[in-house]
Design a protein around this nucleic acid. Sequence first.
DNA 1: CGAATCATTGGCGGATCCGCCAATAGACCG
DNA 2: CGGTCTATTGGCGGATCCGCCAATGATTCG
Lengths: 213, 213
Amino acid sequence: MTAPMSLSAPIRLLLVDDHPVMRAGMANVLGMDPDFVVVAQADDGESALLLWRQHQPDVTLLDISMGGIDGIDTLRRMRHDHPTARVLMLTSSEANEDVRFALKAGACGYVTKNVRAGELAEAIRTIHAGGQVLSEVLRKKLAEDDGTRHLTLREMEVLGLVRQGFTNDEIGRLLGISERTARAHMGTILEKLHVSDRAAAVARGFETGILKT
Amino acid sequence: MTAPMSLSAPIRLLLVDDHPVMRAGMANVLGMDPDFVVVAQADDGESALLLWRQHQPDVTLLDISMGGIDGIDTLRRMRHDHPTARVLMLTSSEANEDVRFALKAGACGYVTKNVRAGELAEAIRTIHAGGQVLSEVLRKKLAEDDGTRHLTLREMEVLGLVRQGFTNDEIGRLLGISERTARAHMGTILEKLHVSDRAAAVARGFETGILKT
DNA sequence: CGAATCATTGGCGGATCCGCCAATAGACCG
DNA sequence: CGGTCTATTGGCGGATCCGCCAATGATTCG
């Protein structure tokens, strides 16, 4: 528990969150620690990408729910433009789909906002050292969820229309497929989500993060 | 724009939020201003109530989504035990139902977390001076929503069961009423929510905040 | 005390849903 | 090259949904 690596250069951070007060909190908490220096802050995805290019931070802390392009998309583009970018998702969402997509999109870690300051600092150090961060709880949720097969793109598309109140017939026409096919998709959705009707499927969609408010 | 009332005693604040980093942000932002002093912080409803009694703060900043009892319930109990308590909701939810219930439960103001630091300080001063705080945006959303009639308790109960995938028949049995009555409730729910089927009703429920993840 | 809202129930009928059966074609994987 | 997954479509039938008609008692409000 002796202060580690205070001799090396501090880890340069980019903070991305659309809540000014939250950013102040991060800057404050992390600014206390000489291992870190906040080189820039952004409140949306666009400026995050811009600021990344300008500052080339060692680690980026990225929120998911933001106005404009969402955090996952920002992450995708950031990793696409700069494959070396190391990103720690710091968000309030515990939805499995968010975690899964974030990791798939190249996040090096995922922590929820109810994390304590010390844990956050530790996570950043791990990320910077080239490690992965995923809390035990989330790891567990993901694992038990892997037993379940996930919705395909097509199925998500269908679920999105179901959410809007379209009938199978309308969904078929909207997607340029037969009503029967839409129904087949509906069937697999119900099966995969372990529910008995489309109303419950929509609910499940929101619960798991497939659907967003 | 001259610094107001710096001669009087500072406004004593209680911060309630389950995100440590967010609390640090609030404490930091508000601590800069000599008008404010943070006398206590809580990360859940129970301790919030306890700390209120101990410190009798001038203004409480209260989050809605928290582990344990939620912010609205905390607010209710706080106002019940101490009708003089002045509370400013500070939350990330923009859902109409949250705003409505908060105001009904006795909140003196409601601001979302994407508020800038200066606005937050201003809001607290207004609350302390006996005023109400509600952003133009939220006021507008509420107004246009008042045209729509709101779900009754019974209807929310039904919607909660619909969400779980129960049929009208099952809902009837669960509530000890006829299937026909459940169906009638369903009908009014669809009408009030301006949707065509129960799946869309569930979606609307999540969008408006009637249903929670 | 009327007006309004709410919770309740009934019948009838067409629309829609969902399950079970089966099949084809393309994509991807080892 | 087989196996698996995905997307697609068909038929059949019972279950369920939703709309339209109408009615009663309780409660609340002005």
